[in-house]
Nucleic acid binder design. Sequence first.
DNA 1: CGCTTTTGACCCGCGC
DNA 2: GCGCGGGTCAAAAGCG
Length: 623
Amino acid sequence: MTKMDVIRRADHEVVLNEDERADSSGDEGSCREGIATKVGSERAYHENDDRKSSSPKHGDSGKQVVVATKQERTTMEADAGESSSQKELDDQLESARAEMVEAREENQRLKIYLDRIVKDYRTLQTQFYDITQQEKTKKSTDPVDDHQENEHELVSLTLGRSSREPKRDGENYKTSSRGENHDEQVKKSLSLGLHYTFEASKSDTNETLPNLSPVNSFGEPKEEAGETWQRSKALKTMRGGDDEVIMQQNPAKKARVSVRARCDTPTMNDGCQWRKYGQKIAKGNPCPRAYYRCTAAPSCPVRKQVQRCAEDMTILTTTYEGTHNHPLPISATSMASTTSAAASMLLSGSSSSSGSGPSFNSGTIAVDLHGQKYYLPDNSKSKQFYLNNSSLSSSSPYPTITLDLTSSPSSAASHFSRFTASTYGPAIQKVAPTSLNFGSSESSNAMAPWGNGFLTTSSQYSHSRNQLGTLNIGRPAMDQSNIYDQFCMQKINDHLAAATSQQTQLPADTIAAATKAITADPSFQSALAAALSSIIGTGTGGSATGGANPGCGNNLVPKWGPVTNSFSSSPPPNGNPCASYLNKTTSSQPPASSKTIFVPLSLPFSTPSNASASPADKSDRAN
DNA sequence: CGCTTTTGACCCGCGC
DNA sequence: GCGCGGGTCAAAAGCG
């Protein structure tokens, strides 16, 4: 502080002020975020400094500045005497120069901070390399046992960095399921995945995939011709793509989240913009299946399939696949987060499904829905077993979570919603005697503990909700949506890490483990609840985005009733996944290899009307 | 004119 | 190898 001392001698008042500023701004605990700003201001100070430095090459010396100022003042006093204006100018000059000195000191501190951060970063990077190298060495010796660990690590390393083509996603699963040498796949994927992670952040890695396949390893000598074409296609895509394409890489991409709801409109309003790119008549279902692609961003990989149930035309099954790589409309954040969370957890829980079939742990399944815990004995009479390989395709290898928002006939007062976690094998459904209150209005937000859109697992909220006995799901407020989205995605990522780490402790190939991870995770439950609110409370969805798909949430209100009489117990007449699903979910004699938990929902929807006739209404006609 | 939808063709995986 | 079915592409048509 020698410089400041000199200045203090020259002008006490100014230096005092500057001293205070220096103290306040020189906080050692300043966060990293502030450094960039301060560094930026540093440059400004320098420029200012250069401009104000009249005498050559003295800009770095505070003493010289002060001396010059003293001389100037002395001269002025001698020649023209004191005048108020001159004093003011003098003071300003002193103040500015003191600022310059203080800024230099601050800049020095910031540089020190920056150096420290860079050093820390490099240290961590070195450690990271060391750890990964050790893991690689270790896994090469024991690939089978390390598979899960590897997946865990890889998932952690590559969250949200997928640019994989959807086409290839399916191929990954299919190829893996074909029974290729899994150990070899693991080895290859291990090395190549890590390699690409380090050397090419844009590489199309498959680290996050449950079933690692050489298909995703570029330059793999064993690749087939067709796969080569697809691979080159994917390479082209990712090389030509921007960072958003890279960021779209997400383990959730291959998982599917299916939502079944009663809806009169062709599609559910989830807040996103969709473009229909295809329509097919699925076998066994006269209703065509429509294929939609997210158009909010050109490179967005998210797609959805919409199909009506053959047996109950009011039931619409929407299956989401992928993760948005762009900012979402407010009304779409909930659904997107939910699908991401559900899919991520599905993958993390089923990532070891390459081996034996799913098996369930005995005992009870605990469902903690935002603090509301439900326990279902393994032999509970209320549980319903069914097999659900896929919501849309009975032969689909995709892990699928089905959110069933249709009603149940067994409850006159409250309507049931089924949450189905389905992977390659039996799905788990859970029953819980609680009530979900989906509110999209301001009032509901005010009443709901987390109805303002902030998903939370706070015990306080859970407690209050428990007291109410009602689970209120509110729509995120407009001004809070960003925070909500960030929080939700953070929770999703947190869960991914948790789920994958948990995976190492669970028996391999245990679907129950995956389902437990899903259902016991508050973040997913939060996201699920938010998604449901997004689906049902569609006040701002389609109208806000101008999407092609009008909302049906408002239509849900009058239509929402115990209609599951249509859920006939007769076997599915065909391979229609929708019908199959219905029958399976309501079967009184379900397969003994899955569990069912119902989450009864009371749905006092308060959704503004925004549905409108859509050209997609014609989608129901034959293809 | 630009965007979306339609729709037949095509690709691919899978089962036989 | 062939056929089937799911999924996607892309040109044409529709729409505002």
